[in-house]
Design a protein around this nucleic acid. Sequence first.
DNA 1: TAGATAAACAAACGTATGTTTTTCTATTAG
DNA 2: CTAATAGAAAAACATACGTTTGTTTATCTA
Lengths: 195, 195
Amino acid sequence: MATATRSNNRLDVLLDSSAELFSAGGYQGTTMRDIATKCGMLPGSIYYHYPNKEALLVGVYEEGVRQLSERVQREIAKATDPWERLELMLAAHVEMIVEPTAYASVIIRVLPDDVPPVRDDLVRQRDKYEVYLRDLVGALPLPEDLDPSLLRLFLIGAVNHIPVWHQPGGESPKQIARQLMRVLRRSFSCQAEEN
Amino acid sequence: MATATRSNNRLDVLLDSSAELFSAGGYQGTTMRDIATKCGMLPGSIYYHYPNKEALLVGVYEEGVRQLSERVQREIAKATDPWERLELMLAAHVEMIVEPTAYASVIIRVLPDDVPPVRDDLVRQRDKYEVYLRDLVGALPLPEDLDPSLLRLFLIGAVNHIPVWHQPGGESPKQIARQLMRVLRRSFSCQAEEN
DNA sequence: TAGATAAACAAACGTATGTTTTTCTATTAG
DNA sequence: CTAATAGAAAAACATACGTTTGTTTATCTA
C-alpha cells in the first residue's frame, strides 16, 4: 500500500521557503531556523520531511530542475529553426532565474562544490537540465573553428551571471536573450555568406 | 614618525592563506580557525591584524584588485588594436582566476551580497577593476544594435564562470580568450563587409 | 468510533563559530 | 644594555548552528 499523505501537508510550503532562502542567501548563508521561521514551523519539524539540511537542498534542486526542464521543453517546441529554438530556451531560462522566488535561482546560486556531501547528486541534477542546452547548441550549423562545447559554457556563464547584475526595472528576459543571440547569429550568417 | 613594523611580520602569510581559503571555500565556508591553522597562527592572533573577519576579506579583495589591475594594465599596453587589447585583457584575466592560489579568484567566488556588512566596500573595489573592461569594450567599433554594456556583462559572466568548469589539463587561458573573441570579432567583421 | 500514524511542537544537546582578554616573548630604538 | 612594544600565544567566552529526543495533535482508515 502506498504511503498516505495528508491534505494539509506543508511539505510544499517548506520547499518553497527553502528555495527562496537558499536562492537569496546561499546554502551556508541560510540556517534551518531561518527556514523554519519562514514557513511557520519549528526547526525540529523540518526533520520529519528531510533527514538533514543537505537532503533538503537536494530536494529543492530536484524541483528546480523539474521546473526548468518542463518550461524549456514547452518553449523550444514552438519553433524548428535551431537559432530560434536556442533563443527561446535562453529567454525562458533567464525569465526563471531572475524571478527571485523561483527554484531555478537556487541551481544558479548554490554550486555543487559548496556542499561536498551531496556534490555528486547536485551535479547529476544540473547535468540533467544542461543536456537541453547541449543539444540546442549542437544543432547549430556553426563554423568549424568554433568549439560548440566552449560556446555552450560561455553561454551558461553569461546567462547565469545575470541575476548578479539584473534589476527588476531593467531589460526583459526576451530582450536579453535577443541581444545575446545577435552576437552569435551574426557570427553565423557572416560565415554563410562567405561560403 | 611612521608606525614601526617588524621584519618577521606575518601579515603577508595571513593574507595569502586567507585568499587561498576564501577562494576555495567561499566566505561562509571558511572559518577563522581554518585560516589560523593554514598560516600557523592561533585564531585570536589574527585579530591583531584585522578587527574582524569581514575586514580581513576586504583586505584580500583589495589586494586582488591591485594584482588584477596591475597585470591587465601591463598586458593591454602591448597592443593598440582594440580587439587585440580586449583579447589580451581576457587572456590575462582568465589566467589569474584559474590559478587557485590567486587573490583574483576570491573576487570571482565571493560576491558582495554574500557579506552584507561590507557589501559597498566590495562593490567599490570590484568596480575599480571593471572600469578596464568597460573602456576596452567601449573602444570597440560595434554595430549600433549591439548594446556595449550588455555585451560587457555577458563577457564578465562568461569568463568568471570559467573556474567552475575549467580543469588544469584543459584549454589554456590564451585559447579560451581566442575562442571567446572569435565570436565577437567575426560578428564585427561581418558587419564591416555589409557596409 | 478505535487504532494507527502523519505531522508538528517543545526543549534541549553537543559542537563550531567569531571574538575577547590576558599573558608572554622577541625585536628594535635609544 | 635596557625599556618599550610589535606581534603572537593561550585560553576562554558568548552565541549560533545542525540535530535529536520525547511528546502532542490532528487526520485518515478499518
